[in-house]
Amino acid sequence: MKVRDAMTDDVYLTDPGQSIREAAEMMANQDIGALPVGENDRLVGMITDRDIAVRAVARGLGPDTRIREVMSQEVMYCFEDEDLDDAAQHMGDIKVRRLPVLSRDKRLVGIISLSDLTGREDARQIGKAIADISSPGGAHSQTAH
C-alpha cells in the first residue's frame, strides 16, 4: 500500500506570520493537532498543538506570538508514492506522529498521521513504529529547544 492510499488529503496550511492563536483556532475548528506552515509556495515548518503549549505558553509567550517563533523549522516529510510501511518506519525513526506528504515535485498533497496507519498494512510494522514514536527523546523532542 502507498502513502497516498492512507493519507488525509484535505490539508489545512498556515502562514508563519499568523499568530499562534489563529493556528490554535484553526486546529480547534478542524479537530486536528498539527498544521503545515507554508510561505512563498514552500513548506517551511510544522506547528503542533504541543508546540503552542510547550514552546509558547509554558515560556510565557502570548497568543499574538507569531507561528515562526515556535514552529518546528526542520520539515520532515514523505512522498505520496512511498510504501506505507517505509513511511511508518520513518515516523518511528524520527519520533513524529505526523508527516506532511509531498508529490515528487515537492508540492504538499496530504498529511499522514498515526491514526491513518492503524488498521492498515503489517500490524507488526505499524506497532513498532508507534512504539518508537512513543519513546522519549529524538531530534524533535520538545525539550531540545
Results as ranks from 00 to 15, higher is better:
Val3Thr: 09
Val3Leu: 12
Val3Arg: 06
Val3Met: 08
Val3Gln: 06
Asp5Asn: 11
Ala6Phe: 03
Ala6His: 02
Ala6Asp: 06
Met7Ser: 11
Met7Phe: 05
Met7His: 14
Thr8Arg: 08
Thr8Gln: 15
Thr8Phe: 00
Thr8Asn: 15
Thr8Asp: 13
Asp9Met: 13
Asp9Lys: 14
Asp9Ile: 10
Asp10Gln: 11
Asp10Leu: 05
Asp10Cys: 05
Asp10Glu: 09
Val11Phe: 04
Leu13His: 04
Thr14Lys: 08
Pro16Tyr: 00
Gly17Leu: 09
Gln18Phe: 01
Gln18His: 09
Glu22Trp: 01
Glu22Asp: 07
Ala23His: 06
Ala24Ser: 09
Glu25Phe: 02
Glu25Asp: 09
Met27Cys: 03
Ala28Asp: 01
Asn29Gln: 11
Asp31Gln: 10
Gly33Phe: 01
Ala34Ser: 10
Leu35Glu: 15
Pro36Gly: 07
Val37Glu: 07
Val37Gly: 11
Asn40Trp: 14
Asp41Cys: 10
Leu43Ile: 15
Val44Leu: 11
Val44Ala: 09
Ile47Met: 01
Ile47Pro: 02
Thr48Asp: 12
Thr48Met: 12
Thr48Glu: 14
Asp49Met: 02
Asp49Thr: 04
Ala53Pro: 08
Val54Asn: 03
Ala56Thr: 04
Ala58Glu: 09
Ala58Trp: 05
Ala58Gly: 05
Leu61Ser: 00
Leu61Tyr: 03
Thr65Glu: 01
Ile67Phe: 02
Ile67Leu: 03
Glu69Pro: 02
Val70Lys: 03
Met71Lys: 01
Met71Arg: 05
Ser72Phe: 01
Gln73Leu: 00
Met76His: 02
Cys78Thr: 10
Phe79Asp: 03
Glu80Phe: 04
Asp81Trp: 08
Glu82Thr: 08
Asp83Thr: 12
Asp83Ala: 14
Leu84Phe: 09
Asp85Arg: 10
Asp85Lys: 12
Ala87Ser: 14
Ala87Val: 14
Ala88Lys: 00
His90Ser: 11
Met91Pro: 13
Gly92Thr: 15
Asp93Val: 08
Lys95Tyr: 00
Lys95Leu: 02
Val96Arg: 09
Leu99Gly: 10
Leu102Glu: 06
Leu102Tyr: 03
Arg104Ser: 14
Lys106Trp: 09
Lys106Tyr: 13
Lys106Gln: 11
Arg107Gly: 06
Arg107Ser: 07
Arg107Glu: 14
Arg107His: 11
Val109Gly: 10
Ile112Asn: 03
Ser113Met: 01
Ser113Gly: 04
Ser115Met: 07
Asp116Ser: 04
Asp116Pro: 14
